[in-house]
Write a protein that binds this DNA or RNA. Sequence first.
DNA 1: GTGAGATTTTGAATCATTCTAAGTACCAAC
DNA 2: GTTGGTACTTAGAATGATTCAAAATCTCAC
Lengths: 148, 148
Amino acid sequence: MIQNLTEHDREHLQEALGKSGQKVTPQREAVFTVLLAERDHPTVDEVFQRAREVMPGVSLATVYNCLETFVGCGLVRQVNHERESTRYCPNLAPHAHFRDKETGRVHDIELPPEVIKSLRSILPPGFDSEVIEISFHGRAQAKDSPAN
Amino acid sequence: MIQNLTEHDREHLQEALGKSGQKVTPQREAVFTVLLAERDHPTVDEVFQRAREVMPGVSLATVYNCLETFVGCGLVRQVNHERESTRYCPNLAPHAHFRDKETGRVHDIELPPEVIKSLRSILPPGFDSEVIEISFHGRAQAKDSPAN
DNA sequence: GTGAGATTTTGAATCATTCTAAGTACCAAC
DNA sequence: GTTGGTACTTAGAATGATTCAAAATCTCAC
Ligand SMILES: [Mn+2]
Ligand SMILES: [Mn+2]
Ligand SMILES: [Zn+2]
Ligand SMILES: [Zn+2]
């Protein structure tokens, strides 16, 4: 089931949208709620299916629009793996992604500051990077969803 | 201009294809030659345009086929950035990619073994990664192509 | 030279994403 | 409370990179 937003999350949404002169709408709230409910890096289509459970009339175009808006104001990150459909991640902490070869599931991998520093250090002088993306591909011990 | 393959490169091609039971064909040779001639991470379309200069009748489908074959036998790597067209890279040494925000050009960044190790070390137990992809996005001092 | 299998070619199909144009919601001014 | 402007949403069409299917060509062992 998809819970409502907590007070804190609603403020987070409100503030991030407000900063770029945009408003909280029922659709944006629904899509954001879906993203926070299950942090499993869903594709646009998965977000769309889930959002419809909560708001049956919402359109696919709107889901695309909301997600683009959220990326634009820094609420979520896009996650791309090879040529697969884009996935979305509401985890704002610096982290890498691990895609499980077998299940296709994407896991967050915490990224300690010293590793980020060591990565930056390999850039030759003159190269100035704003974004670093790191993705692993391999097998992950099943271990299933932690809580049930 | 697109040079012919060196003896060494032709053997490399021959051997890698042979290992997976495939043959050197004029088209494969042309596409491989194009990739080695300018190591600028061309898209399929760019490879196609360049290959036609050397072999006017070659088809786009064949370029796709050749590139897929090369990736399959480890002769080249695919390089993906966000949702852009796939690019191809014949540099087999471990390296990261830097995409220049302004020019769109993609540069190779050498990846020292200790940095690879530090990256592997952030994986929790149970995660076993075969492939690590690292890509930077930012500005690179123009500095143009080194040799002319 | 024949035939089997691999490769290439053309053109159609796929499918995630973007675009367009029309419809709604909201709000402030009158 | 009507009007008009603006932001937002919607349905459906368009796009474009990639993949697929089927027919043509090549290669090589026999
Ligand atoms: Mn917060
Ligand atoms: Mn070699
Ligand atoms: Zn994530
Ligand atoms: Zn490269």
